[in-house]
Design a protein around this nucleic acid. Structure first.
Length: 234
DNA sequence: ACATTAAATTCGA
DNA sequence: TCGAATTTAATGT
């Protein structure tokens, strides 16, 4: 069970919770706990049973895997408002990816029993899940489609644009607190390369870089950098 | 890897 | 509690 002021914060980042009745909300609160993670700490290890659906309250986490040849592959970055783990929960399988905090992070954990109770009882919750899955699918299709010709600047642009997805991170503004090192970790490039890419993007007017944060006026333009045509993911 | 700049923290009044 | 001094963090090349 989480406290009342924590509930307030959870409501801010969990759009799906806003449509719940008071009774539903109480039940969900009872299945929640809040945990904090230090830099580099694991929120969920690859191959481990998945016991929770996790939402990021604050901080930054990286979802990815380490391939057999030792290459570190990042699938997505997550910040406040991002939820993950529903795929493994629904399929009742162990976690396919590792989830690591890139900076001190606070997250809310919803236990699997409550997750499934919502899944079976709440229409808004299911709508949220479907919307989120669909959004992710669109992003991955874009990734696969252009995986071949991704230069470093485009990779950084993608990683950054992903963090500005308005469906996955509702309520986020145009400015995100992220260091160039963190962005490099998400994009799979070194910090100096991330710096170079950001300056490149800034020259193109796609981003504005200030100390410890990046402003993106048009995330879609950033996401579709380098594409000749728009992909239809409907 | 190094030099520069920004921010956060400490410390003395 | 104010601001200067110091340390730590982030950036740019």
């Amino acid at each position: 069970m989480i406290s009342t002021d924590e509930t307030e914060r959870v409501r801010q980042i969990a759009v799906w919770s806003r449509a719940l009745t008071v009774a539903e909300c109480d039940r969900v609160r009872a299945g929640m706990q809040i945990r904090t993670y230090g830099r580099g700490e694991t929120l969920g290890a690859e191959g481990q049973p998945v016991e929770h659906w996790i939402g990021v309250l604050e901080g930054l986490v990286k979802v990815g895997t380490v391939s057999p040849d030792g290459k570190d592959i990042t699938f997505a970055g997550m910040h406040a408002g991002g939820w993950f783990g529903e795929g493994s929960l629904l399929k009742n399988e162990c976690r396919r990816y590792e989830v690591v905090a890139l900076r001190p992070t606070r997250a809310v954990l919803l236990d699997r029993a409550t997750f499934f109770w919502l899944y079976e009882n709440s229409v808004p919750f299911n709508q949220f899940l479907i919307t989120q899955l669909n959004e992710r699918l669109g992003q991955f299709i874009g990734l696969i489609e252009h995986a071949r010709k991704l230069d470093t600047t485009t990779r950084v642009a993608r990683a950054l644009a992903g963090l500005f997805n308005p469906v996955l991170y509702p309520g986020a503004g145009q400015t995100l607190a992220i260091t160039q090192e963190e962005l490099g970790l998400l994009a799979g490039v070194s910090r100096p390369i991330a710096n170079q890419a950001l300056r490149d993007l800034e020259r193109q007017g796609l981003v504005h870089v200030t100390y410890g944060e990046v402003t993106v006026p048009d995330p879609l333009a950033l996401m579709h950098l380098g594409e000749e045509r728009q992909i239809n993911t409907e």
